[in-house]
Write a protein that binds this DNA or RNA. Sequence first.
DNA 1: CAACCTTGCTCAATCGATGAAGCAACAATT
DNA 2: AATTGTTGCTTCATCGATTGAGCAAGGTTG
Lengths: 339, 339
Amino acid sequence: MNQPKQTKKTTIYDLAELAGTSASAVSAVLNGNWKKRRISSQLAEKITRLAEEQGYALNMQASLLRREKSKIIGMIVPKYDNRYFGSIVEAFENMARERGLFPIITCTRRDPELEIEAARTMLSYQVEWLVSTGATDPDRITDLCAASGVRSLNLDLPGSRAPSVISDNFAGARELTRRVLANCERKLGRVEPLLFVGGRGSDHNTSERVRGFRAAHADMGLAVDDNHILTCGYAPEKAEIALQALAQQEGNLTRGMFVNSTISFEGVMRWIKRSHHYDGRPPVMGCFDWDPFAAMLGDDIEMVRQDVPGMLNAVFGIIDHGSSKVERIEIPPLFLSQN
Amino acid sequence: MNQPKQTKKTTIYDLAELAGTSASAVSAVLNGNWKKRRISSQLAEKITRLAEEQGYALNMQASLLRREKSKIIGMIVPKYDNRYFGSIVEAFENMARERGLFPIITCTRRDPELEIEAARTMLSYQVEWLVSTGATDPDRITDLCAASGVRSLNLDLPGSRAPSVISDNFAGARELTRRVLANCERKLGRVEPLLFVGGRGSDHNTSERVRGFRAAHADMGLAVDDNHILTCGYAPEKAEIALQALAQQEGNLTRGMFVNSTISFEGVMRWIKRSHHYDGRPPVMGCFDWDPFAAMLGDDIEMVRQDVPGMLNAVFGIIDHGSSKVERIEIPPLFLSQN
DNA sequence: CAACCTTGCTCAATCGATGAAGCAACAATT
DNA sequence: AATTGTTGCTTCATCGATTGAGCAAGGTTG
């Protein structure tokens, strides 16, 4: 290689000197508007070649400082450890890149302080938009952004001061519950109220899903026991503990379950295996969220798939059109065949 | 709120004017070295209060342009859709943050062109280090970085021109194979060579795992049929197709399998369900990688867990000590109980 | 009271890229 | 020959934060 292995980075000034021209000519050539600036194609070619040879890389910090738009878009996400958030992040990156935006993503582990700090950092990096996914306090992030004149947007969990794109949790939960109840009937010969496990009672999604869960029961004339709504949190261990406690209290658990997220589903399945409670007569299950392996765990585990592409289309629809109407867009989740 | 909802962002000059002082005093106060610069605590307090009131946010672009170190660290990752990469990314973010580094992560979907482009972009953002995870051509990325005087490092897949941190694939595969063979013996009463499914024959990890697979067979005096090494790629569909083809060709498949990644495992399990090939006599399985739900799919599915914290400790060990010795660090994977 | 130190700031250059304004050289038009 | 137009550049201010150098006011020392 004849590239100089220098420590100092090559700048447009270095290239200008090598080419015997000015930095502004170099800049014009390298950012592509040399035609507009009437640089001869010979000079353009020479500069391009030199840049290549020297391994020149634009200093984005300098460039962004000068320009008015950063083209950086930020996303805050609670975790990377499940399919739902994983596919959100992946789709977000792709769609951002398609639009010439540079995505910065950070994971805040459902920690409210980290969320705020991450948002502040993103503002420092001059993001043009900030998407808060599953944030514990989206409105606070919106306020922070607003103070810097940055647009924000909520995904997965709604806020009240910025546009929000979420799943239609009520309809999704109602349909999921309906299906699980139908499976109950088919497999057990009778319907029987289900158990609801997982999520935080205080969050919008969980409360909407509980509402859908109740509505589906009401539709079939079934009464839901309030003790059977275990909104014990999302963590697998919490689901295990809650089930254990209920089993101790009631002896026999319900024959069907509605599990609110794959994260909780992990705890539920672990408890079922360990406790041997359901040995020989596996429960009829539904889960609000999808995971390929979880779906294979039983014969008829109903899994709702949240429509990630649909949600991100809505997100980028708002971004593309700059609309800042504080609206809530609810995307119907999908019921696909499991295999 | 009395914060000004302006569009223009507040700068240190605005704050200086409001405080009746100079921008340099404001800068000194806000970046914490006002003691060094002998600013009175009264002025410091006043400036801090004003900054708060005005919702001031540092312009990182300007700050970084001036400073010598960016404290930005980049990571390139192939996918977000499995536990292994998910936990790598999450741990990387945490460990970077602990060190006061700002992590930028991007997913390149195993696309060589995207990898290079992403690396270039990261260089533009003045990353101090670039970690290439599972890159298809890590050396090319190393060269790109070297041309800009940026340190790089390979994770998961090794390269030849930068330090590499990988799992001990050979030892891991050998032990995994040994365990699966032992399970075979226990469950079927006899040992019998396994089938190897998934991965690319050309990549280092796969070839090392095949080597370990063969070694474990040799240890037990078993011969491996070359047709039973299906390095068909990682995608689930490829595993399905490969199994289907082999089944058609051979009639009966082996009673045990070594699956090279959870991604491939998804395809294998799907094929097993669809084809009914193993109905009534489930295969004895091992998988190089771990997934909580996949682990629950059978009674004795052996899953090797790659030691993500161990690998990232090694990565940050190199970063912390600035060592650029081109070495290969192999981290032994973990065999934990599945539940 | 001169020499020196300390305190508490301000000034101005700088980082690298950008783009408006300007200018020299030459060509085309009247 | 004078005017206008075009081509192909260069000059310079600018973005916002940082930091070495410097300076004025007051205090201390011999």
